[in-house]
Design a protein around this nucleic acid. Structure first.
Lengths: 129, 129
DNA sequence: CGGAATCCTAAAGGATACTG
DNA sequence: CAGTATCCTTTAGGATTCCG
């Protein structure tokens, strides 16, 4: 599958499989789901309420894609309910994805200020033009 | 801006500003651009060729969004050409985003195997049905 | 070269209703 | 409850052309 002779075999190549993987993991829904499932396996409905704003359709699709890529698995539990959990592979994703969560939450104000600056600068431009 | 009284002020809340930030940084184009710009400031055309598969339109839009959020800035260089580079804020993004690149590139085979397993299991299901 | 403008398609996502 | 199925809207993204 991999061509070690090809120096372009990185995420920067559009046709490298790693580009597809990057697109899947560099995704807000994936990040939120992986972060939640790292705590503990969850049922579909629990995920649905804890990932605020996600629709059932998108949740199903994202879970299926993550299962296909081997990051998530679902299995029937002792109480008769199926639960989704991370696989070993999925667990290796938790740290980098949680880093994104932490970044996003801790830089809210920085980003907000930058946006305000940018927008007011843009307004001045408009006024000048 | 922030409501410290609201315990739901996290990326898991659809209306929390951090959710928007997460969506912006958990994005393949953002990741690729930030990783490249961390090495050195680049001109538009250099970015365009090094981020294989991106169109000029999408590159412009992504750069503008990153500038608005204060992660990228462009400035005229000594040679008279404008170059894009990371701001201090943008530089803090490099490590977590490069972690995603490394994950994607180093787990290509794991993901491929998982997909093969999943797809052949699905085929068997179809045959049974 | 570094875009901006326009147009268009495909994909993501949302709403709703239905089912085992 | 855990999905499917359907339909619809919106956004991301691509192709092309033009401009300073």
């Amino acid at each position: 599958m991999k061509d070690p002779m090809n120096p372009e075999w990185t995420v920067f190549s559009a046709r490298c499989p790693s580009r597809r993987s990057l697109a899947r993991i560099a995704n807000k829904w994936t990040a939120l789901i992986v972060i939640l499932l790292n705590e503990q396996p969850l049922r579909f409905g629990e995920l649905h309420v804890r990932v605020d704003g996600i629709t059932k359709k998108v949740l199903v699709e994202t879970l299926r894609a993550l299962e296909r890529d081997g990051m998530v698995a679902h299995s029937r539990h002792a109480d008769g309910h199926a639960r989704y959990g991370l696989t070993d592979l999925g667990r290796t994703l938790h740290e980098p994805l949680q880093a994104l969560q932490i970044w996003a939450e801790s830089h809210v104000d920085d980003v907000q200020r930058a946006q305000d600056r940018y927008d007011s600068a843009a307004d001045r431009q408009e006024g000048t033009a």
